[in-house]
């Protein structure tokens, strides 16, 4: 299914953000993406906070996948 495909990609995208292969993403990791992605520091912070459901400062693969999955779900219905 397209959703399963997205979830597979989510893992690869997570690895791109998890620069030190810690198994989670911090705000510092997001800030490092600044030069690589066409997003402002503010936007990267917004993305982080949107995905960080528990607001504990760490993005787990599950939270990352959930965020991407919801986005795909939204796009399906749009």
């Amino acid at each position: 299914s397209p959703q399963a495909e997205v979830m597979g990609k989510a893992k690869e995208l997570f690895v791109l953000c998890d620069k030190e292969s810690k198994g989670f993403i911090t705000k510092r990791d997001m800030q490092r993406l600044q030069g690589e992605l066409p997003l402002s520091p503010e936007q990267l912070e917004e993305v982080f906070e949107s995905l960080d459901r528990r607001s504990n400062g760490f993005l787990t693969p599950v939270e990352f996948n959930t965020g991407l999955g919801e986005l795909v779900g939204l796009e399906d219905t749009a």
């Binding site: 990609k9 690869e12 995208l13 791109l16 953000c17 690589e36 992605l37 066409p38 997003l39 936007q43 990267l44 917004e46 993305v47 906070e49 949107s50 965020g67 991407l68 986005l71 939204l74 796009e75």
Partner: peptide, 29 residues
């Protein structure tokens, strides 16, 4: 869209983030 959370990124920003990551991934070996 009322689903957008206060203080959170809009769908557009999130989409931009993921799309940019995707193209970064496909754009590099």
């Amino acid at each position: 869209d009322p689903n957008i959370k206060a203080g959170a990124a809009s769908e557009g920003v999130l989409a931009n983030f993921f799309n940019s990551l995707l193209s970064k991934k496909t754009g590099s070996p």
